[in-house]
């Protein structure tokens, strides 16, 4: 049954040094607040997993929380590079970062295989690319019926899966809608899951494209309004596009990055405190 807790308790109880952890979100519903709390609690040696590592992964990597990244596209969408990620890969700053690199289709197949309890998934993919040369976890199998060669990728089993969603009810069922990405698969692929919700409601009102996760597959629910900022939660907030541009020069300069992380993450204790520490213009335009 779902446990309700505070964010700091949820991270303390579920995320341990050395764990394989995904904080998923496909532009929408990215659990930034959970990443900040992992940084505050000083986790180390994590294997981070994400289809689209963005600013929160730049922060986790730059603060030395990760030793490996499994991913398919690492960038600051619409704004440029992740400079803390690039410094780790290009110059081993703050330390070496092993990478395991896939395509989106491959990562999605890996999540779906894990959610299905299978050891691997198949897709028509990767053929003829150099990803096959550099990623040992891409292999090929023959279809037993037609003989067609297909790519095989192992299930992406997680220690911890963390997502945002719009709502939970008091029984701990979770509902999300809009772009749902691989949110469901992340929870179903994880031994332990944490879901940050905008709001806890008495009853769900069905939504187009709504996804419901029943309470018996949800580990811990945290009520954390704007926990996805600067990402967004459809019908609760809008994406803070300005923040993604604002991040570019901070990420570029390691000293400036460390000072920013100190002021806004390490010196604050909660997501509300983090949001209050930011210039108001970055936050105000995102209220839906």
């Amino acid at each position: 049954m779902t446990k309700f807790s505070t964010l700091s308790e949820a991270i303390e109880a579920n995320v341990h040094d050395g764990d394989r952890v995904a904080l998923e979100g496909f532009t929408h519903l990215i659990p930034f607040a959970a990443g900040h709390e992992i940084i505050r609690q000083g986790r180390r040696n994590l294997t981070l997993v994400r289809m689209t590592p963005d600013i929160i992964y730049d922060q986790l990597i730059g603060m030395g929380c990760a030793s490996k990244l499994i991913f398919s596209w690492a960038g600051n969408p619409g704004a440029g590079s992740l400079h803390r990620f690039r410094d780790a890969v290009e110059r081993e700053i703050p330390g070496p970062l092993a990478i395991e690199e896939h395509s989106h289709a491959g990562m999605a197949t890996r999540y779906a295989a894990s959610a299905s309890g299978l050891p691997f998934g198949i897709l028509r993919g990767y053929a003829g690319t150099d990803l096959v040369e550099v990623t040992d976890n891409v292999r090929f199998v023959s279809c037993p019926f037609t003989g067609e060669s297909l790519a095989a990728v192992p299930a992406l089993d997680l220690d911890v899966g963390i997502i945002c969603a719009q709502q939970a009810d008091r029984q701990g069922n979770v509902m999300l809608w809009g772009i749902t990405g691989v949110q469901k698969e992340t929870v179903l692929s994880a031994k332990r899951s944490i879901v940050l919700v905008e709001e806890i409601v008495e009853h769900f009102v069905p939504h187009v494209n709504g996804v419901v996760l029943p309470n018996w597959v949800v580990g811990t629910v945290v009520e954390c309004p704007s926990g996805s900022f600067p990402s967004y939660a459809q019908d609760y907030s809008e994406r803070a596009n300005d923040f993604y541009a604002y991040w570019e020069p901070i990420s570029r300069d390691r000293d400036r990055f460390l000072a920013w992380m100190g002021e806004h993450v390490l010196m604050t204790e909660t997501n509300a405190g983090f949001l209050a520490s930011l210039d108001s213009h970055l936050v105000e335009s995102t209220r839906a």
Binding site: R86, S103, A105, L123
Partner: peptide, 16 residues
């Protein structure tokens, strides 16, 4: 790498 770029995203299978 001299420059680390974002990576594949959806492109390999789109191209295929």
């Amino acid at each position: 790498p001299a420059v680390r770029l974002p990576g594949a995203g959806g492109a390999p299978e789109i191209a295929a």
